[in-house]
Nucleic acid binder design. Sequence first.
DNA 1: ACCTTGATTGTTCCG
DNA 2: CGGAACAATCAAGGT
Length: 138
Amino acid sequence: MKGRTAKASTSRNTDNKLAVKKKGKGEKDPNKPKRPPTAFFVFMEGFRKQYKEAHPKNKSVAVVGKAGGEKWKSLSDSEKAVFIAKAGKLKAEYQKKIDAYEKGQNVEEMEEEESDKSKSEVNDGEDDDSEEEEEDDD
DNA sequence: ACCTTGATTGTTCCG
DNA sequence: CGGAACAATCAAGGT
């Protein structure tokens, strides 16, 4: 959870007309990156396979979903941290893709005028190769 | 569609 | 104008 500490209700409304989001799924962007899997999904990726081996005759993903959810809650913080770390990396990469995607759509129409326009370089240097596997035994 | 949880996003309101 | 807080949508997996 980020800084979004869910406060129950601060009585901050007069008419209760809170966010009504629409699907707006009509937009088709070929370059639009999908959302990266959350820690739970990353965990599920392996869990599904595991479950499939334990129950090769199962066909419902729903069953695996429920089982995964329960297992997930049964994991220790340290174990979950492993997936969270992976999700964190994926999220970072996703943000990078989004950056590129937005820039691609933004060929022109730049509201932000930068006096200095000499900067149009995307970081291509990949040096982050430190595989860190922190496993903490409880 | 079933189903899970987390993350991102959109919307509204207060300072 | 910006952040805080909340509400809703979306991400995959297999038949």
